[in-house]
């Protein structure tokens, strides 16, 4: 089976039916995507499949095969020299010192990035609605909300600058 992850192609064993999450983590060593509940409740395992936020713990790997998958490891842009340009969401999460333990944060940032992709200028209500799907036990919610709003503004500015 072929998986296209962060612009790279990976071949994995056909094997038994299994969730994408454990293929990423245990078979491919992409441990940036986290396991929280295994049942679709917490959002820690969120990745992008064809640009959409998906919970990889309940996404069968066969469903993702042949599609474009993006994980936290591929959210920043890697330059030819290996340097990383953070995604505006990562930039905002870092600037506002959002994460505490950070176990939920890959999922939070992937959820936020997908939101801003589909809704570039979200209202407060839209941010709250999208980000309330993900748990953060450390309680970073106040900062998550502020950082997503900041990332949206940042992306809008970049868009204006480019136009």
């Amino acid at each position: 089976m072929e998986l296209n992850i962060n612009g790279k192609s990976y071949t994995i064993a056909d094997g038994p039916a299994r969730p994408l999450l454990w293929v990423l983590r245990d078979e491919l060593g992409l441990t940036g995507t986290k396991f929280g509940c295994g049942a679709g409740y917490c959002g820690s395992c969120t990745v992008h499949v064809e640009g959409e936020a998906k919970r990889s713990c309940i996404t069968p790997v066969t469903e993702a095969a042949g599609k474009t998958i993006r994980t936290i490891e591929g959210l920043a842009e890697a330059g030819a020299d290996g340097s990383l340009t953070l995604h505006p969401v990562q930039q905002a999460f870092l600037e506002m010192q959002v994460p505490q333990c950070s176990w939920c944060m890959s999922g939070q940032m992937m959820t936020a990035a997908a939101l801003l992709e589909s809704t570039p200028s979200p209202s407060d209500e839209q941010i709250v609605a999208a980000m309330s799907q993900n748990y953060c036990r450390c309680g970073c919610y106040v900062r998550i909300k502020a950082a997503v709003a900041q990332a949206a503004r940042q992306m809008a500015r970049a868009e204006e600058g480019a136009a």
């Binding site: 396991f35 953070l86 990562q90 870092l94 994460p99 940032m109």
Partner: peptide, 16 residues
């Protein structure tokens, strides 16, 4: 945080 933001930080569940 720099490592955590890009998914590089290693936790017990991530050890390989």
């Amino acid at each position: 945080l720099p490592d955590k933001i890009v998914g590089k930080a290693i936790y017990g569940y991530d050890m390989r």
